[in-house]
Simulated assay, not measured.
Amino acid sequence: MNSTYVDLSNGFEDVIISFKPDSNEHTFPVFQYSPVNVQGPGCPVDPSEVTLPGCSCLSHSCISESCSCLQTHGQAYTSDGSLLSTNVSDVGPSTPVFECNALCACSDSCSNRVVQRGLRLRLQVSSTSGRGWGVRALQRIPHGTFVCEYAGEVIGFEEARRRQLAQRSEENNYIIAVREHAGSGSVTETFVDPAAVGNIGRFLNHSCLPNLFMVPVRVHSLVPRLALFAGRHIDVEEELTFDYSGGYRNQTPGQPRLAQTDAAIQASRTLQRKACHCGANNCAKFLPLDLSILN
């Protein structure tokens, strides 16, 4: 048996994701690696299509005084690429992030290009105790650093609902539902499922006291990329986790983000709640279940 580590991404990432494939503890899932989102059933827009306008900056890195992108959407990153707004609440940062894109005239090293550069950290997928596979850092990660995306198939609401209801009790639910609230009560929903097509993000475990938080970041398309940033300084060998319900630190354990309708409550009774083994003092005992998909 092969006892050496291999690259989980098969060269799709610029940085090797080390993984030891001969573990006898857990069966490794079969999936297609993709570093970015792909269009799935029910998604009307190809996430790879460039639909956002670009700036005309000819400088090495954009500045807010002259960049139309920064003037329209605001500055999201420091000069070294760290997220400026890391003061997250139960529902995450409220300020949307827009990066410069393929139509912008600025250089690829512009400080407003972070998530689109892809994985830059040394990470490892390894077996955990009682929680299947997990991801750990092989280097120190400063607070506010972009870590990785949660990438997969972008699907529609009905497809997300169909997949969730069709899951067997022993299967993992990878679907993440992100809801962004705009003015006049409008809500934008994005559903990402990395079960069949996905990246390293699919191996991140849930924690009720996580060290990562998720931010929707728009690059070339209106379809957001679900970027995970360090919520605090992360040490070498520390496991990387995020809250599957979208909260960070102060979320009340077990509290759903949206009101439960009778239909959602009835449908949830057909799904077996999975126990949470994060070990945090505020552990909710069960993994979050997005009941709004079941409406």
Rank of each mutant, 00 (worst) to 15 (best):
47 P>E: 08
105 A>P: 00
87 N>W: 01
107 S>L: 09
263 A>Y: 05
93 P>V: 15
45 V>T: 15
248 Y>K: 02
223 V>S: 00
174 Y>M: 09
166 A>K: 00
138 L>E: 15
119 L>K: 04
214 M>K: 10
49 E>T: 07
100 C>A: 14
140 R>T: 14
245 S>V: 02
130 G>P: 13
169 S>Q: 06
32 Q>P: 04
139 Q>I: 08
224 P>Y: 02
181 H>P: 02
129 S>T: 15
37 N>A: 04
206 H>W: 08
141 I>C: 13
33 Y>L: 12
112 N>K: 07
135 V>Q: 10
15 V>M: 04
219 V>C: 08
91 V>L: 02
17 I>M: 00
75 Q>V: 15
150 Y>D: 10
5 Y>I: 04
25 E>H: 09
118 G>S: 08
204 L>E: 08
29 P>F: 04
174 Y>C: 08
173 N>C: 15
47 P>V: 07
142 P>K: 12
114 V>P: 05
99 E>W: 11
215 V>C: 03
90 D>S: 14
5 Y>N: 10
217 V>Y: 00
104 C>Q: 07
164 Q>H: 02
288 P>M: 03
200 I>S: 12
72 T>G: 10
261 T>R: 08
213 F>K: 01
160 A>W: 01
55 C>K: 06
109 S>C: 10
254 G>Y: 01
282 N>T: 12
273 R>M: 00
